[in-house]
Design a protein around this nucleic acid. Structure first.
Length: 151
DNA sequence: GCCAACGTTGGC
DNA sequence: GCCAACGTTGGC
């Protein structure tokens, strides 16, 4: 089983939205590395650390799980959708996604500043300067430290 | 709101 | 295949 970190701007989709929905297709990702992780490496049951970005105090706020196999991102086919990509077609889809399910919202999460201040977490990809990738693998070691630190 | 860092596009 | 220009991300 693998661990992942998924970034989301809470204004667009927050952990509370996921708690309400229970399950959601992680659509709109338009980055090849992120797509490859979802399409080629994610497995049902993998753990998702849910990260809020682009806010005053960014950080990990809860957990979800991968709950589908990969399938094409429908929003790429919809000309009305902000993530429309005319180069993606049903015959030859360019973008793939998985569904993710809500697991828990932390009472006390882990801010980016905290992640950077913890010796065993400061080398997480998300803590690196200029890190923009919205889907990143998390090592088992990092996952254990995260889970031991949050409540 | 600023701006550095990054990924993508497209002309050549 | 290079690389300048552009758009976006995301911390601050």
């Amino acid at each position: 089983m693998q661990y992942w970190l998924l970034k989301s701007e809470p204004a667009a989709y927050s952990i509370d939205d996921l708690a309400r929905d229970g399950r959601t297709p992680w659509d709109g990702v338009r980055n090849y590395q992120a797509r490859n992780f979802m399409r080629d490496e994610m497995k049902v049951g993998d753990v998702i650390f849910f990260y809020h970005s682009n806010i005053k105090e960014p950080g990990i706020v809860g957990e979800g799980a991968v709950c589908s196999t990969p399938y094409p991102d429908e929003t790429a086919f919809d000309a009305q959708d902000p993530h429309y990509d005319p180069k993606s077609s049903r015959e030859s889809p360019r973008w793939y996604l998985v569904d993710i399910c809500f697991k828990k919202k932390y009472a006390c999460g882990l801010s980016l500043a905290q992640i950077r201040s913890v010796n065993n977490l400061c080398d997480m990809r998300v803590a690196q300067k200029g890190s923009r990738l919205s889907v990143t693998p998390v090592s088992k070691e990092h996952a254990l430290v995260i889970r031991a630190t949050v409540t």
